[in-house]
Nucleic acid binder design. Structure first.
Lengths: 319, 319
DNA sequence: CTGAAAGCGCTTACAG
DNA sequence: CTGAAAGCGCTTACAG
């Protein structure tokens, strides 16, 4: 075909806003160019950022995602899975709340590619999760370099598997006798607990690590009330996404990057590429206080690209 | 066909887990049995519950939803709209943050059914939103019946269109001189503000209304510190979903029911049924303190069924 | 290299 | 009432 003819066809096609019919193509290729995201977190605080990363990674390939909020309800989850199978999704992304928490329904019998995110998954499953242990180790190392020797960890509710896991990760990094306090995810609890610490303890902590941002906000308020300067006298660090409070180190599980990496693994599986089963633990972003963080997770997403399961060089640690 | 043959076919079909191929059907019917949900709230705190209601309403019809998080970014939103058009969605649900806030991109030129939720939409658009004014009127009426005459409203951040709108709705219901305080959505702000009120004001309020649950939690803490009993001395009410704090009246915009109603309207439009343009304001759920609220929004969804735009009897108020 | 035919899995309208 | 044919919009393999 003559190049100018080709160009003319292209031009007229775009003038008419011609869109090749995906259903027709799907019928032939036996692919729907669609994946399902089954969210097991009731509020979407995890699956929402994950879904953003997933969309970012799949949009260019023309793959769209069905987001299904299943919460903890197995019946709802099953209905959604049925609907997705009816729609012939090419693969499934299962998003939970904690690496150790199994998903409410068993998905191992499904005859399609499945990738788990922050969810236990079957023994031979493919699981993506943030490496919280590494985040604590790195943060505590930085703190030690800055002369901080006595960290305390405000974990949040002990009822939450995710919080307990995170507390374990802290202990593994800080030592098994490191103080961990359980309570709630709330500003008031963080404030109350730090207030109590500064009233009663003789050896005051020189670093306060928190399981979630509201706790850190409360801690900051209490420290201010006690005339403690942050970070000059006491360092504060917290797990969380979004903007950290001022003067606080953020350990960001970088859920968007996690979602993007998991989606890429799923696309590879859909494309018949073998993906080795295992737990892919991706590094968290550590944002020191005052660091310009308006680049969002852009940089980190790049990092993960270089570490996608398909690329064995510099792959993330597989537990 | 003999009934027993019919039965045998059915049985074998289900034994083989036969699923009629949606793409083939879509190719013929020129429908994809898919709708798009374009979410303009950055954190999903609105679009997430809305999406649950949407899924609930569409699942039975075999319609699935593409959830697209566009945040406030017009570029991302446009990309998602492109992807949805490529996927030939049958209709679009646009979810914003406030009735008066226009969506970042113009969608009025789209040649497919569009329904707006908590988003301004074009003049001849179809818009669904919770009736916050009515919720305030009803709550304040209940409070007056209980002898409360001096409400104060802790609005949250004045930068948020949604918070300003809500504050206007409060003033419209409580009187234009009713006290409104702006600050943040946080426990600490609620606590601080109530603390300040109880230290300085001579005519103390006898009812504290809040724009969001964390504010109410802070208010409760401050009232407790001042030895004020709730609700015996002072009534507390707040906007929010999920479980309200104890002794607090909840004004729940019932976003699931809103999503379900909007989805039904969209399905009607897709099914060629005329839906009258306008603003459909759905009543909020008012949950008095101590009311068993583990029925979630089940009841309210029923209510809305009876008020869907297709059913003109008892239709919601159209502004 | 170009162009017509066959077929993906359904549904719908039309003969028998 | 039953059964075969045509066609939805593409792609892919195959003649010309």
């Amino acid at each position: 075909m003559a190049p100018e003819t080709r160009e003319r066809v292209r031009r007229i096609a775009s003038e008419l806003e011609f869109r090749p019919n995906v259903m027709a193509r799907a019928l032939l290729s036996r692919r729907s160019f669609t994946i399902g995201l089954l969210a097991g977190d009731p509020d979407g605080s995890i699956s929402m950022p994950v879904a953003r990363g997933v969309a970012e990674a799949t949009l260019a390939d023309g793959v769209s995602v069905f987001y299904c909020a299943a919460s903890h309800d197995p019946t709802v989850a099953r209905k959604h899975v049925e609907a997705m199978l009816d729609k012939h999704v090419d693969g499934l992304l299962v998003v939970g709340e904690a690496l150790e928490a199994p998903f409410p329904i068993d998905l191992s019998a499904l005859a399609l590619p499945v990738v788990h995110v922050l969810s236990a998954g079957p023994p031979d499953g493919i699981v993506f999760a943030p490496d919280e242990g590494e985040a604590f180790r790195r943060t505590l190392q930085d703190l030690r370099t800055a002369g901080r020797q006595r960290p305390v960890y405000l974990a949040g509710p002990s009822e939450s598997v995710a919080c307990r896991q995170r507390a374990l990760a802290f202990r593994a990094a800080a030592g098994w006798d490191a103080p961990v306090l359980f309570g709630a995810v709330s500003e008031l609890w963080g404030r109350m607990e730090v207030d109590r610490l500064w009233q009663s303890v003789e050896h005051l902590p020189d670093a306060v690590l928190c399981g979630a941002t509201p706790i850190a906000q409360g801690a900051l308020a209490a420290l201010a009330e006690h005339g403690v300067r942050v970070p000059a006298d006491v360092a504060v660090a917290t797990f969380g996404d979004g903007d950290p409070p001022p003067h606080v180190t953020l350990m960001d599980p970088d859920l968007e990057a996690l979602g993007a990496a998991a989606a890429r693994a799923l696309l590879e599986m859909i494309g018949e590429t073998e993906v080795r089963p295992g737990r892919y633990l991706l590094p968290c972003r550590i944002v020191p206080p005052g660091a310009a963080c308006n680049t969002a997770s852009g940089g980190a997403v790049q990092d993960v690209t270089a570490r996608s399961p398909g690329d064995r060089r510099g792959a993330p640690s597989v537990a």
